[in-house]
Computed example of a mutant assay.
Amino acid sequence: MHAIILAGGRGSRLLPYTRNRPKPLMTLGRYSILEILLRRLRSCGFERATLCIAHLGDMIRDEFGDGARLGLAIDYCIDEPPCGTAAPLRQVPDWHTPAVVMNADILTAVDFAHLHRIHVESGCLLSVAVRRREVPMDLGVLHVAAGQVRAIWEKPTLAVDVSSGMYVIDPVVRELIPAGVTVDMPDLIESLIDSGEDVYAYRFADAWHDIGTPAGYAAAEREFLADPEHYLTAADRPRDGHPVLEAR
C-alpha cells in the first residue's frame, strides 16, 4: 500500500517552533510528528510513502532519506512554489493505485489499512476520514422558517462532522487538478461532487489530534507521552463492518 504525506506547509501558526525547522519535524517525546506517522503506516502494512515537501524540505529529506531505517520505501516530490494542499498530487511519481493521503501535522490512532480497504470497497474516487466534533455555542441558536422563529436553543453544543485531513484518493483525480494554480483539498472534493462523483465519508472514533496551533501541539504531546504505543503501533482488533456510503 502507498501513502502520500503533505509535508510542505510553512507552519506559520506554530511560530516560533517552526522558525528554523519544518512543522513535520517538531517532536512529541523522542519522535518527530512525521516519524510517528511513518511508523504507524508501516505497522498498518504500508510499504511506500511519498513525502510532498517544500518549506525546509531538505531537512525532511536528510532526516528520512530513502526510508530504509523505518522499513519503508520513501520518495519525494517538491511543491515549489507551494500551490495548495491538493496541487502537489499532480507531481507524485509512479502513482497507479489508491493511496492514503494526509497532512503531516496529525497525531492519530486510525487504522490506515482499514481506511484504505473500505475506500476500495466503496468504489468512490475519493474518501474523507470524518470525525464528529462537539462545538459549544455561546449564543442562542434559532430555527427560523417562513419568517417565523420556530424554536430556540440557548447556548447549545452542536455536533458537526469535520474533515480530519486524512483521505484515500484514486490517482485518476489528478485530471481535476489544473496546473499552475492554487488547489486545496476542499476545491478537489467540490470538483468531484460537481462532476457527479460520490465522495465517501469514512467515520472513525479513534484518537486524532490536529497539530496546527500551540494548543493543539501541547494536547497532542500530552496524549502521545501518556501512551506512545497507542499511536506508533496498529492495534490488532476486529472490525465489524462500516457505515454505508455517505456521499454528497
Rank of each mutant, 00 (worst) to 15 (best):
A3M: 13
V149Y: 05
D111Y: 03
I4M: 06
R132I: 11
E175S: 14
P22S: 08
H96P: 05
G29L: 03
P136C: 06
D210L: 10
V183F: 01
S164G: 12
T233N: 13
R10E: 05
E80A: 10
S191E: 06
L34M: 09
D206S: 15
P98M: 04
V149F: 07
L192A: 00
V160L: 14
A49N: 03
L70C: 13
V199E: 11
A49Y: 06
R239E: 06
L142N: 15
E221H: 04
P16V: 08
M26P: 08
R237D: 03
C44S: 14
A201L: 07
S163F: 08
V162A: 10
S195V: 08
I118Y: 13
E246H: 08
I152H: 05
E175R: 14
S12R: 12
L139S: 14
D210S: 13
T157K: 00
A87H: 06
L28H: 07
L232N: 15
A215N: 01
D210P: 06
P238C: 04
P243G: 12
R117E: 14
A145H: 06
A54H: 10
F224G: 00
V135W: 12
D111T: 05
L125A: 12
G180D: 05
C44Q: 12
A129R: 07
P98K: 04
P178W: 06
I33L: 08
F64Q: 01
D161A: 03
G84C: 01
S122Y: 07
M137L: 12
V130P: 09
R69N: 09
H116R: 14
Q148M: 09
M59N: 05
